[in-house]
Design a binder for these strands. Structure first.
Length: 96
DNA sequence: CGGTTGACTTTCC
DNA sequence: AGGAAAGCCAACC
């Protein structure tokens, strides 16, 4: 397991419950500038059922990059509201 | 070692 | 406003 991924996972784990952040943010905090894609790649390699709160990571628009509704359901379960377009208000729910 | 890939982002039309 | 194109960078094969 690459140390980069470990750092990415560590950052994701620090996202408070009920908050969200973007791939770019996670990358920056993990010390990988402009590594948004790498974050996505790392999360895609994440086994289902892992303790990592991957659902709190959204793209720059504040929407899910995954097909399906699973991520949305998980977030709504934490109190995160989606607008009519299926987007989250990053200014309100963003990490910091 | 080099081309392909992708749960991204930004910038132009 | 919405879509296409280009830029990015590490992991994979």
């Amino acid at each position: 397991m690459s140390e980069r991924w470990e750092r990415i996972y560590a950052v994701v784990c620090r996202i408070p419950r009920g908050r969200v952040t973007t791939y770019g943010e996670v990358a920056a905090r993990a010390g990988i500038l402009r590594g948004a894609r790498q974050v996505g790649y790392a999360l895609s390699a994440l086994p289902p059922g892992s303790p990592i709160p991957w659902h709190r990571v959204l793209n720059a628009r504040g929407e899910s990059s995954l097909p399906g509704e699973e991520q949305r359901r998980l977030l709504e379960g934490e109190g995160v509201r989606f607008d009519a377009r299926g987007r989250v208000d990053l200014a309100r729910y963003g990490w910091r």
